[in-house]
Design a protein around this nucleic acid. Structure first.
Length: 582
RNA sequence: GUGCCCGUAGCUCAACUGGAUAGAGCACCAGCCUUCUAAGCUGGGGGUUACAGGUUCGAUUCCUGUCGGGCGCACCA
């Protein structure tokens, strides 16, 4: 930045403070943009904060500070107001300068360049859905959130890596393999009753047909042979889980080495489907990390040994327990069952240990809100391993419900009756999807109105913001001059109230990004863009850009071009397109 | 029952981590297109921030309790 009004004011105040109250010169100086235009461009509550320690009337302190302020060509006025606020009114040139700044930095405007020691190596792990079926709208929210967060952190100057943890071992994958095989058998008339707790979706039958097409009857066994290995399902379903496990065991026994093919086919197929879906959504992962690999490379064993060596594991009822209560969890957790099998928790511990061993300064997990009970034990495990658990941040993303107007779209994961991300994207489009997902903070449940997201009306915030961009493009196209020349335009004609307010809003953009990245709150970027668009629409209606007066016209065009750039940069963070005409 | 999240305009949500008269959008009412895209703009009514206390110059924000809603509380992931 060539000139930053905020830090300039901060310096002025700091100098005044050193003279008024030398012993308090280290007080942090906060400058905020007042909500009300009447309170100037920047305000400081410094005097209010000093009142207590100095035991003096805040208004008096403020008066003294103002009296000590050095004269600056960038400041028109500094005055005491309210309980003891100091309000600053900037000179017009201090505000319009941002236009040049934006037009020269272009797509880099708002990006933060951090000194090496502040630049963090950050990992964002998100979605990580079991590859047992298509992604649904809840996963979509996690995808949009995680991706925007990653983009934000990149803009904030950090080195960010996106990762998807693939649950490719364990019971859920076995159930998927079994489900596929049973559907396959049915294609050959071998009808084993299909369990209610197996995967019901149509995609399972599709995989069965693929296998038949590729390998014919190779994997067929008689229904009688399967049923012979299995205790029948009780009428009340009390043994449903055991019955399912029996079926899985029967499948493994009968198929032998062929089981691995069925299992792998289902996994590969579902993973590819989810991956393609995410790519189409504009979400790309740097790493797809396999859970199974944690077993294959001995990392799970290594992590468990380290836990034991540190004395945080004990044996009870034949199982190994991690004493997570020692780290604030509400109860201890089993890591290895009495049958010798690890629980899902064991590879998760190994995974997080591995993350930190890869040298990330910050590891951010984006989880569904139903996993919140999991945080304490994960943190505890890292502490028990001797790691810095402060490097792990967990963001919980709340649920999504879909609405058509006032009608709620019913969804149940169990019955396989849910709206997929792909269907949602197909119906409302990627832009509306991403923007709507980003219109709520993560810890707030989201009601997604399909009718609204589709409507091409002023009710729809996506179009509202994109429309502002299209309007600017249209004006610049009609002018048809050289937009590169606008960067050197004389901006003094920009003196209107709306124009200066727009400049101030544009100058705010880097702060919005910084705060959004700090708080893991990408929704604030969406809110900012909506406000920026609103101010532009208002300006557009009040003033004409392509006026006769050449100097004024050029200045206004420069302002419009700067605004377009900021809209584009904001869209880039949200992953929304910037249409030139609508 | 016990932990976490939440409760703000009729509806959907903000509020720069404790600041000034709590803000937007929708809905409702009244206006603006021979002039750069009306997918837009202007104006209006709307609030005891669930409730009761406490902390201090100052509370939607922090603490305690009550009420109401969501989600967890497996040798499932």
């Amino acid at each position: 930045m060539s000139f930053d009004p905020k830090s300039h004011l901060s310096e002025l105040l700091g100098a005044a403070l050193a003279s008024v109250a030398p012993e308090q010169r280290d007080t942090a100086i906060l400058l905020e943009r007042p909500k009300q235009a009447g309170h100037g461009d920047f305000a400081s509550n410094l005097a209010l904060q000093l009142a207590k320690t100095l035991k003096a009337n805040p208004r008096e302190i403020a008066q003294r500070l103002v009296r000590e302020l050095a004269v600056s060509p960038w400041v028109d006025k500094a005055e005491v107001a309210g309980a003891g606020f100091i309000n600053f009114r900037l000179a017009a040139a201090a505000k319009t300068g941002i236009v040049k700044e934006i037009l020269s930095q272009r797509e880099a405007y708002g990006k933060c360049v951090l000194p090496q020691e502040q630049r963090l190596k950050v990992q964002v792990e998100f979605v990580s859905a079991n590859p047992t079926g298509p992604l649904h709208v809840g996963h979509g929210r996690g995808a949009a959130y995680g991706d925007c967060l990653a983009r934000l952190l990149t803009w904030a100057g950090h080195a960010v890596s996106r990762e998807y943890y693939v649950n490719d071992s364990g019971r859920q994958m076995d159930i998927l393999g079994l489900s596929t095989w049973l559907r396959y058998l049915a294609l050959f008339g071998e009808n084993v009753p299909f369990p209610a707790n197996a995967y019901q979706g149509e995609y399972v039958s599709e995989m069965a047909q693929q296998i038949r097409a590729a390998h014919g009857e190779r994997y067929v066994h008689s229904a009688a042979a399967v049923c012979a290995c299995v205790a029948p399902l009780e009428s009340d379903g009390a043994n449903a889980d055991a019955h399912l496990d029996d079926l899985i065991k029967a499948a493994k026994d009968l198929l032998g080495e062929d089981w691995a093919y069925i299992h792998q086919h289902a996994l590969t197929e579902q993973l590819a489907d989810g991956r393609a879906d995410l790519e189409e959504f504009g979400v790309h992962f740097d790493t797809w990390f396999s859970e199974r690999s944690l077993f294959d490379t001995g990392m799970v064993r290594k992590a468990m040994e380290r836990l034991e060596k540190n004395g945080h594991v004990y044996l009870q009822d034949g199982a190994k327990w991690f004493r997570s209560t020692a780290f604030g969890d509400e109860k201890d957790r089993v890591v290895q069952r009495d049958n010798g099998m690890y629980t899902y928790f064991a590879p998760d511990i190994a995974y997080h240990l591995n993350k930190l061993e890869r040298g990330f300064d910050k590891v951010i997990d984006v989880w569904g809100a139903d996993h919140h009970g999991y945080i304490a034990r994960m943190r505890g495990a890292l502490q028990a391993l001797g790691c810095d658990a402060g490097k792990l941040d967990v963001v919980l993303v709340q649920f999504v419900s879909l609405w058509r107007g006032t009608e709620k779209v019913s969804m149940s994961t169990r019955g396989g009756q849910y709206v997929t991300l792909r269907e949602l994207r197909g119906e409302v489009g990627n832009d509306a999807c991403r923007f709507f997902y980003m219109l709520r903070k993560a810890d707030q449940a989201l009601d997604f109105d399909l009718d609204l997201a589709k409507s091409q009306s002023n009710d729809n915030p996506v179009y509202y913001v994109q429309y502002a961009h299209a309007r600017v493009c249209s004006v610049l196209a009609q002018w048809s001059g050289n937009s590169a020349a606008l960067a050197s335009a004389d901006l003094t004609p920009l003196a209107g109230e709306r124009e200066l307010a727009l400049c101030a809003r544009l100058a705010e953009f880097p702060e919005v990004i910084e705060a959004a990245a700090r708080d893991y709150a990408p929704h604030t970027v969406a809110f900012y863009l909506r406000e920026l668009a609103a101010e532009f629409h208002s300006y557009y209606n009040a003033e004409r850009i392509l006026v006769e007066d050449a100097a004024l016209r050029t200045a206004r065009l420069a302002l419009a071009a700067a605004l377009r750039q900021v809209l584009r940069n904001g869209f880039a963070i949200l992953g929304v397109s910037a249409p030139e005409n609508m």
